[in-house]
Measured scan of single mutants.
Amino acid sequence: KLPPGWEKRMFANGTVYYFNHITNASQFERPSG
């Protein structure tokens, strides 16, 4: 399970990334916590 605010998303080319809808942060590494 991801930390609060984070969700797993995917680009059109299939690349997975993680987006935080609270802070609008995005990253390729899975957030810890």
Rank of each mutant, 00 (worst) to 15 (best):
residue 4 P to R: 10
residue 5 G to T: 03
residue 26 S to E: 10
residue 7 E to F: 06
residue 9 R to E: 01
residue 20 N to W: 03
residue 31 P to A: 02
residue 26 S to V: 15
residue 6 W to V: 01
residue 25 A to R: 12
residue 20 N to T: 01
residue 20 N to G: 00
residue 33 G to E: 14
residue 11 F to H: 14
residue 13 N to G: 07
residue 1 K to E: 15
residue 26 S to Q: 13
residue 15 T to M: 12
residue 25 A to D: 09
residue 23 T to A: 05
residue 5 G to W: 06
residue 18 Y to Q: 00
residue 19 F to I: 06
residue 10 M to R: 10
residue 3 P to D: 05
residue 32 S to W: 12
residue 11 F to W: 11
residue 11 F to M: 15
residue 19 F to T: 02
residue 32 S to H: 12
residue 3 P to N: 04
residue 20 N to V: 01
residue 28 F to D: 06
residue 29 E to S: 07
residue 20 N to S: 05
residue 22 I to T: 09
residue 9 R to T: 03
residue 15 T to N: 08
residue 29 E to G: 07
residue 3 P to M: 05
residue 1 K to A: 15
residue 10 M to L: 11
residue 14 G to E: 03
residue 4 P to S: 11
residue 23 T to S: 07
residue 33 G to Q: 12
residue 9 R to H: 06
residue 28 F to L: 13
residue 19 F to G: 01
residue 30 R to H: 14
residue 3 P to Y: 04
residue 10 M to N: 07
residue 5 G to Y: 09
residue 26 S to D: 03
residue 5 G to E: 08
residue 4 P to G: 08
residue 1 K to V: 14
residue 25 A to K: 13
residue 21 H to G: 07
residue 9 R to M: 10
residue 15 T to E: 12
residue 19 F to A: 02
residue 15 T to P: 03
residue 19 F to V: 07
residue 26 S to L: 15
residue 30 R to Y: 13
residue 16 V to K: 04
residue 24 N to V: 04
residue 15 T to S: 09
residue 11 F to K: 11
residue 2 L to M: 08
residue 30 R to G: 03
residue 21 H to A: 12
residue 22 I to P: 02
residue 17 Y to H: 03
residue 15 T to Q: 14
residue 11 F to T: 15
residue 14 G to A: 03
residue 3 P to L: 06
residue 21 H to Y: 15
residue 22 I to A: 08
residue 13 N to L: 03
residue 24 N to A: 09
residue 32 S to Q: 12
residue 12 A to W: 09
residue 19 F to K: 03
residue 16 V to E: 10
residue 14 G to D: 03
residue 26 S to P: 02
residue 26 S to I: 15
residue 31 P to K: 01
residue 32 S to T: 14
residue 16 V to G: 03
residue 32 S to K: 11
residue 1 K to Y: 12
residue 24 N to Q: 14
residue 11 F to N: 15
residue 30 R to P: 13
residue 11 F to P: 02
